[in-house]
Structures are given as structure tokens and as C-alpha cells.
Simulated scan of single mutants.
Amino acid sequence: MAKTAFLGLGVMGFPMAGHLAAAGHEVSVYNRSAAKAEAWVAKHGGAAAPTPREAAAGADLVMACVGNDDDLRQVCLGDDGAFAGMSAGAVFVDHTTVSAAVTRELAEIAAAAGIAYVDAPVSGGQAGAEGGQLSVMCGGEAADFNRAAPVIDAYAKICRRMGPVGAGQMTKMCNQIAIAGLVQALSESLAFAQKAGLDVTDVVEVISQGAAGSWQMVNRHASMADGTFGHGFAVDWMRKDLAICLKAGDELGAALPVTALVDQFYKDIQTMGGGRWDTSSLIARLTR
């Protein structure tokens, strides 16, 4: 069992840290809103710390799951940042979806302090975090990954090293690119079925068994047809992720025409007041 710290207790981090505690790891938590950290301790035990530095002090592994590049820098750097509290030889594991650039920047700073760094963004959403069934894609040195993976297993369905630092974030971009096009296609299919007077449930039961089947189709078709979009991964966050993808695509010379188009469709959803709706809300553009 490891001594761990978890920084960021949002809809993903709260249950992920809970799985660490349930697996028997010693867990110290930090959250920008102290009330959320106290609520976590009341539910799971462990300890809450007032700063990332104090949460990270003495930990073998420090996990973070925050909002964006700037949030990650804030919890890592400065006098109260996690790096200031970590001992040489400890491993920092970042579960945030951020740019590969900030990942490499922070990994270099960590290395200078003797701290190992693994970028480990996740896929599976709130349901995957709560069920301990996340897909975790990691970048970092093999030895560092091998130290982190048995602990990450507390909330992972699969945890795989994809390459050096930054490779985890690049893999997460592949994930978001694939989801963007898939959800738009599913939205068009379901909206078409409704306009054709078909029973959406019957349609999905048939086509999900063939080549059109997907996790999104099986798990989101009913709520999409009903116009309910409260599953957790907000459009605002998806647009943040797609901006990262599109910037990386420009840098790599990789064409992402569908991703760019769907990003604008998500902008429409924001204009409709759906910034906090989940990503399946793309159908709302077609059925309003």
C-alpha cells in the first residue's frame, strides 16, 4: 500500500480518490474549495490539507485531476505547490486533460527536483470514475509508470504506457477526436429516426448489434432522445479539449476537419445555454 495525495476533487477526482482509500492506500486530499475536501474525508477517511504542498508532503505518489493548463501549474508550482512538498524519488501522476506542452514543461521542472512525472489522462467520464472503470493512457519513463500503475489500478479498467512524457496526452487527443465525430453522427442518426417516425429504442436495438454499434449509442441514446443531458462531462470542458486537439493538429500537420466542425457545433450548444450540458447534447441543435 502506498502513501498518496490526490489534488482536485471534482466529479472525477472525488470518486477516484475514494477508490484509492477503498484499496487500502493512505490518502491525503486537497481541493481549492476546502469544504469539498472535508466532505471527502467525512466519507472516506484520510486527511485534508490546506495546500497542495502539505497534501503532497511525504507521499510516494501524488495524483492530480484539475481543470486546465493554468490550474495544473497552480497546484504544481510555487511555494504552496505540490512539487515544493514532494521528496526526490516521488512520482507525480497527472490525470488532467491538458496540452502536451504544459506536460513537458512541468515534467522538466519535476525532473530538476528529482521528481518522476507521468501524464495519465483518463476516459470514461463520471460513471467510469465512480465505477472504477476508467481507461488511463500514460506517458513517462517505463520505471516510473511501473511504480504508478499498481496504484492507478484502483480506478482503472485499463492502464497502459503509450510512450515518453506527453504520449498520454496525445493519446487522449485521439480519444476526444474520435468521440467528437461519433457523437455528432449518433445525434444525426437519432434525430433522423425521430423525424422518420421510428421508435428510437427499436432502431438502436437493431443497429447497435451491427457495424454502427458504439458505447455512446448503447449508453446515451435514451437520454439523447429525451433531451436530458446531465451525465457529467460538460460541453465547456469538451471545447477546452478540442482546442488542444486542433492546436496539436496544426503543429503536426494533421488534418482534423470533422473535429473543427464539431467544435463549432459545440459552440452552438454553448450559445443555447448548454455549456454545462454533457457532450451528448449535440442532438439539441438538430431537434430544437
Rank of each mutant, 00 (worst) to 15 (best):
D268L: 13
D153A: 15
C138K: 04
E141G: 11
V200Q: 05
G58Y: 13
S208V: 04
G274K: 14
T279M: 11
G58F: 13
P150G: 12
R73N: 10
G181T: 05
H231R: 14
V258Q: 01
S214Y: 14
F233A: 06
A111I: 05
I269Y: 11
V98C: 02
A17I: 07
G131P: 06
H221Q: 00
G131C: 07
I115A: 03
R276I: 00
R239N: 12
G125V: 08
C174A: 13
T96L: 06
K36W: 01
L246P: 10
A110C: 10
M170P: 00
F265A: 11
V66M: 01
W237H: 12
R53H: 05
H231E: 13
T4P: 03
E205P: 00
C76L: 13
S187C: 08
L261N: 01
F92T: 00
I158V: 15
A88V: 04
A110T: 05
A149D: 01
G58E: 11
E188S: 11
G114N: 10
A90V: 05
N68F: 07
K267V: 12
V91K: 04
D202F: 05
P52N: 06
A82E: 07
P50A: 13
G253S: 02
A84S: 12
V122F: 01
E251Y: 01
G124N: 02
V235K: 07
G45F: 12
V66W: 01
T228Q: 09
L186G: 02
M272A: 10
A142S: 11
I152F: 00
V218Q: 13
I177V: 13
G125K: 04
W40T: 11
R147H: 03
A248Y: 13
I244C: 09
N219R: 09
A148V: 12
A116W: 06
F83H: 07
L72K: 12
A111V: 00
C159E: 00
T171H: 08
R161N: 12
P164G: 15
A148I: 07
H44E: 03
V93E: 02
R73T: 07
D94T: 04
A156G: 06
I283H: 07
L256H: 15
N219V: 04
A222S: 14
V91H: 02
D263G: 09
A248K: 14
C174I: 04
A148W: 09
Q126N: 04
A39K: 14
G166H: 14
L61E: 01
Q169K: 03
M272N: 02
A260G: 15
D94A: 08
V203P: 06
G197P: 12
A107H: 13
A211T: 08
Y117G: 05
M12F: 14
S99Y: 10
A112L: 03
E205S: 15
P257V: 11
V200K: 06
G46S: 04
A212D: 00
L9M: 04
H25E: 14
E108V: 02
A48K: 00
L256W: 11
H19T: 05
G166I: 11
G253D: 00
K240I: 04
G139S: 07
R239K: 15
E141K: 08
D268I: 09
L282P: 04
F14S: 09
A17P: 07
K43S: 06
F229H: 14
W215Q: 06
